[in-house]
Design a protein around this nucleic acid. Structure first.
Length: 453
RNA sequence: GGAGGCGUGGCAGAGUGGUUGAAUGCACCGGUCUUGAAAACCGGCAACGUCGCAAGGCGUUCGUGAGUUCGAAUCUCACCGCCUCCGCCA
């Protein structure tokens, strides 16, 4: 079982108490202590059980050892100060020196013991997912998700619609074999008009979010350090899904699986003025996912790739604002689909189907004619204080105490899957594809993607 | 990659082993004064953890980690970051 890297890094148990607590409590450690039954109930809704007995036993020990350690420390500090004073006056310090000499070993032993206890508590707390919001539907898997709304009408074709693989290859714009040759399976090469359509989608999304939705465009590193991955909750539990890059000096970085990681970590360790909130960032990046364990799923086409482009919208808000912000942010993702006239439905994920860090999640699913079904194209979540606590990201009102802020993010949208949706929904019987109206300004006069020959 | 310099509270900036969690200034908050504001004056103002009903106590933190010491912002070592100069490079 993993514990945080900052815990692992230190081989000797001389870390301060404070530093240990920085590592834990994605969940509010106070909640776990004071109302463990609330935590257990929340976990049960996610279909997970928790055994609180070990935690309570550890916690009792921690309390006793920590108090004792601090008392010893206090005693030593007092004596040391006295030594200083006596020495300054030129008096005899031998008796005090004798007393303080015995303190060292006892204290060291206590500190070591405490460090072990705190590491165990850390590991325990770090595994507990966020508590689902009360409005989250009950359910243990995707079948429990609730459709909130359906927008648009799936197109009806008087021919059998092709899937995006057939369409893209016919257009000479998608080359899956080249992706495999150059890299590996689940990598794709785009070219010509299809590549341009992909770029047009990205530019269109960026323009809408910055000009109409009030987001600030950011450009971020695509490789991030482990601390950032911990901050947003990818680590310690989901390292297998990440591409890891070793460095010559023995450290390592990770390729981002979503821009959520670098963008949300902008506020890691910061105390922001509440009046300066909300912060709204939009960011377009490639995303890299190793997706260990997904072999055999969606192997055809561009639906599930190791590399794909995606927009993320991130909002950093005052705690009391986050539920309104979730509705707003989801609406921003919906606006893109609406402008593209792509039929979609909005799903409220049930407790058992939500991600580790989320308090509530809406998925947007776009209609894919060839699959005759809706497929996920955006996921919008409110994490409440879960990520913020992990990242020590706080806000402060005038004259007030710092408190964890709330973070949200949503895809707006996954560009590759949007491309798939456009190809399939805008196709015509001859294999050509009409360019959606809103993309025309970005297509340099191309109004139809035409098949080769 | 080579040489040198530097990392202290929201900011600026003192502090080189002992009642220093840290001078001073700015910013900020409260008050006096003023018709109001400004100025002036007075007072307050770090974070985190922990114990406590509370008042408050205790602990930790001066880039990070490891050492020396009864005691470290201050001494030693390693690492990280930033700045300057040289070299190289998209």
């Amino acid at each position: 079982m993993h514990i945080c890297a900052r815990s692992m890094r230190s081989t000797k148990n001389r870390r301060t108490i404070d530093q240990f607590f920085k590592d834990i409590s994605m969940l509010d450690i106070q909640l776990l202590r004071s109302q463990p039954e609330v935590v257990a109930a929340g976990l049960a809704r996610r279909g997970a059980a928790i055994d609180l007995a070990p935690f309570e036993a550890l916690e009792a020990q921690r309390k006793q050892v920590q108090t004792q350690t601090q008392d010893l420390q206090s005693r030593r500090n007092t004596l040391s100060k006295q030594i200083g004073m006596l020495k300054a006056k030129g008096e005899d310090i031998a008796p005090l020196m004798a007393e303080v000499a015995g303190l060292g070993d006892a204290q060291k032993a206590n500190e070591d013991k405490l460090a072990v206890l705190l590491a165990e508590l850390d590991a325990f707390a770090a595994q507990i997912p966020n508590m689902p919001h009360e409005s989250v539907p009950e359910g243990t898997d995707a079948s429990g998700n609730v459709e909130v709304l359906r927008w648009g009408v799936p197109p009806s074709f008087d021919f059998t619609p092709k899937d995006h693989v057939e369409l893209g290859e016919g257009l000479g714009g998608l080359d899956f074999a080249a992706g495999v040759k150059i890299a590996a399976s689940r990598f794709t090469l785009m070219k010509g008009e299809v590549a341009r359509l992909h770029r047009a989608l990205a530019q269109f999304m960026l323009d809408v979010h910055t000009a109409e939705h009030g987001y600030t465009e950011v450009y971020v590193p695509y490789l991030v350090n482990p601390d950032s991955m911990f901050g947003t909750g990818q680590l310690p539990k989901f390292e297998d899904d990440l591409f890891r890059v070793e460095r010559g000096d023995g450290t390592h970085l990770y390729l981002i699986p979503t821009a959520e990681v670098p963008v949300t970590n902008i506020v890691r360790g910061e105390i922001l003025d509440t009046a300066s909130l909300p912060l709204k960032f939009v960011c377009h990046t490639p995303c890299f996912r190793s997706e260990a364990g997904s072999y055999g799923k969606d192997t055809r086409g561009m639906i599930r790739q190791h590399q794909f482009d995606k927009f993320v919208m991130v909002q950093i808000v005052a705690p009391e604002m986050s539920w309104d912000a979730l509705e707003e942010l989801t609406g921003h993702a919906e606006a893109i689909l609406q402008k593209l006239a792509l039929p979609y439905r909005k799903m409220a994920l049930c407790a058992g189907d939500m991600g580790f860090s989320a308090a509530k999640t809406y998925d947007l699913e776009v209609w894919l004619p060839a699959q005759n079904t809706y497929r996920e194209i955006s996921s919008c979540s409110n994490f409440e204080a879960f990520q913020a606590r992990r990242m020590q990201a706080r806000c402060r009102d005038k004259g007030g105490k710092p408190r964890p802020l709330h973070t949200l993010n949503g895809s707006g949208l996954a560009v590759g899957r949007t491309l798939v949706a456009v190809l399939e929904n805008y196709q015509r019987a001859d294999g050509s594809v009409t360019v959606p109206d809103v993309l025309l300004p970005y297509m340099g006069g191309i109004i139809t993607l035409t098949p080769l020959r």
